[in-house]
């Protein structure tokens, strides 16, 4: 099935070495990977295995030491700063473990920060509706639960209609029930908007909702499994 879809990302022999004075940390040691349009992948792996590093490089937040990454046929590894900014601004959405909302702005305004500079944004209300927060438009982050805040962050990430959504432990700070609600929001966006989504998690149970599960270990891809039957997020429990 994947073969018929457009290859969004192509990652070849990607390496990343962090130099800490004398010490060299090999965060990535030759990663090969594809990400297809519309698919939902889950990245699993022990702490320090390089998950965040990989996602940061794919999202243009960090640069690689070796190898290359291409996005829709364009090589990211030697893009200019300006191209990186354009890429981040118009093509990728990020969701982090900590929501990074602006505390003095309401949910709607937090989303507006992005829609005001995006090329083809949706209206903030629609983005918040997609994550089930249409009743909370005028709440400030301090007036929202952790799960609600994470959903505002997701609404903010998808409001620019990105082709790709990269999520680094989006449920890491949430209990399982709240986590499920957040995952449902991601699932819905993936299904309804066709946004290719990559989710990093430590939680093996979450892998059930993915099309493919990529296992990282010690800076390399250890295994890629395809879920014949995808679970819906609401069925998940941990």
């Amino acid at each position: 099935m994947s073969d018929l879809k457009e290859k969004f990302f192509q990652v070849r022999e990607l390496t990343k070495i962090y130099k800490m004075g004398e010490v060299e940390v090999h965060a990535l040691r030759g990663v090969n990977l594809e990400l297809y349009a519309g698919e939902l992948v889950v990245l699993l792996g022990p702490s320090g295995s390089g998950k965040s590093t990989l996602l940061d490089i794919m999202g243009g937040l960090d640069t690689a030491t070796g190898g290359f990454v291409s996005y829709r046929g364009k090589e990211l590894t030697n893009a200019t700063d300006k191209e990186f900014t354009q890429y981040r601004r118009f093509h990728v959405g990020f969701v982090f473990q900590f929501y990074n909302l602006i505390s003095s702005l309401t949910a709607r305004e937090n989303v507006s920060v992005v829609t005001e500079i995006a090329e083809k944004p949706m209206v903030p209300e629609k983005a918040l509706d997609l994550v089930g927060l249409s009743e909370r438009l005028n709440h400030f982050p301090a007036q929202l639960s952790g799960g609600e805040q994470q959903r505002v962050a997701i609404a903010r990430a998808i409001s620019k209609n990105p082709a790709v959504l990269l999520c680094d432990e989006p449920t890491g700070a949430l209990d399982s029930q709240t986590g499920v609600v957040v995952l449902q929001a991601l699932e819905r966006i993936n299904r309804e908007l066709g946004t290719a989504t990559a989710i990093i998690t430590h939680n093996v149970d979450i892998a059930g909702m993915a099309d493919r599960v990529i296992h990282l270990s010690n800076g390399k891809i250890a295994e890629v499994t395809v879920n014949k039957v995808k679970k819906s997020a609401s069925e998940l429990q941990w």
């Binding site: 602006i102 003095s104 702005l105 305004e109 937090n110 507006s112 920060v113 005001e116």
Partner: peptide, 8 residues
């Protein structure tokens, strides 16, 4: 008013 102006 822009969101960031409002923030300010």
């Amino acid at each position: 008013m822009k969101a960031l102006t409002r923030k300010l």
